[in-house]
């Protein structure tokens, strides 16, 4: 499975995968490179440039940036993966169900989807964030609520054409059961789109959290979060430009990694 995946991956997808692996490794083990954890304030080393003890320097409270960056990237990964898993499972199962089980289910789900689509995703997330400020769980819920619709729409459309295809009709006539039809016909048809949606969805989830942090309504300090760090470090851009650059580069690399991984060869 892994081998065949690697074989079919394009050059861009391999680059994206590698980039994400490196970021993930940093997120998991980056704390080990720091002398202290991300909350420890070394008041003797405020805004210190990168050095042997502080690889990425220290921020305005003298906190180690290596540790804080690792924390922030780990948080981003966690949110991204949680959102993708939740929204894809819900979206795919409801999408297949709607396309395969007759008009009533489809109609009911479509009404629901139309309601969700009436508001831009970020506005929905912002409203949720307003209700429970600074909550990771609510953020996760809100983003998943917005994102499953994407899976639902794509999966529903692809499943519809698959269900109507001669190939599936033929298997059905030969007596194959529902699970077989899903395994051989529907899943192979939707899997590539689901994968692409998942990678792009992961990037969007990470972006959304950073956006909220950036307008100061997302995660709250002293938590390390990429968007929040940008706002916090912006005042020091002339004294310590590397500090502001770090979260900027991190978020760009995360998004780039997921976008590269998800793009099919054209």
């Amino acid at each position: 499975m892994m081998v065949s995946l690697l074989k079919h991956a394009t050059f861009g997808q391999k680059c994206g995968g590698l980039l994400l692996l490196v970021l993930l490794a940093f997120a998991l083990f980056g704390n080990g490179l720091a002398p202290n954890d991300g909350a420890y304030q070394d008041l003797d080393a405020i805004l210190a440039p990168p050095s042997e003890t502080h690889w990425l320097g220290t921020d305005h409270f003298g906190r180690s940036m290596v540790a804080r960056m690792a924390d922030a990237i780990r948080l981003s990964f966690m949110l991204g993966v949680l959102c993708v898993v939740t929204s894809s499972i819900i979206g795919v199962s409801l999408g297949v169900w709607a396309a395969w089980s007759g008009k009533k289910v489809d109609a009911v789900l479509n009404v629901f989807v139309n309601i969700l689509l009436a508001l831009p995703g970020l506005v929905i997330v912002l409203l949720f964030a307003a209700i429970v400020p600074g909550s990771f769980f609510v953020l996760y819920l809100a983003i998943s609520l917005v994102q499953w619709v994407e899976y639902f729409r794509v999966v529903r459309a692809v499943t519809k054409t698959t269900v109507d295809s001669p190939a599936m009709q033929s298997s059905q006539m030969m007596g194959f059961g529902r699970w077989y039809l899903f395994k051989r016909h529907i899943w192979p048809a939707i899997a590539p789109s689901v994968f692409t949606l998942a990678t792009f969805g992961c990037a969007t989830a990470i972006l959304t959290m950073a956006s909220l942090g950036f307008v100061y309504v997302g995660m709250q300090p002293p938590l390390a979060e990429l968007g929040l760090m940008m706002v916090e470090l912006f005042p020091y851009y002339s004294d310590a430009p590397w500090l502001l650059a770090e979260p900027l580069i991190a978020i760009a690399l995360l998004v780039l990694g997921f976008h590269l991984l998800g793009r099919k060869s054209s």
Partner: peptide
């Protein structure tokens, strides 16, 4: 791809 990797506020910030 490069521009897309950057959130709009990062582009603005730059």
């Amino acid at each position: 791809t490069t521009i897309r990797a950057m959130p709009v506020f990062v582009v603005g910030l730059i």
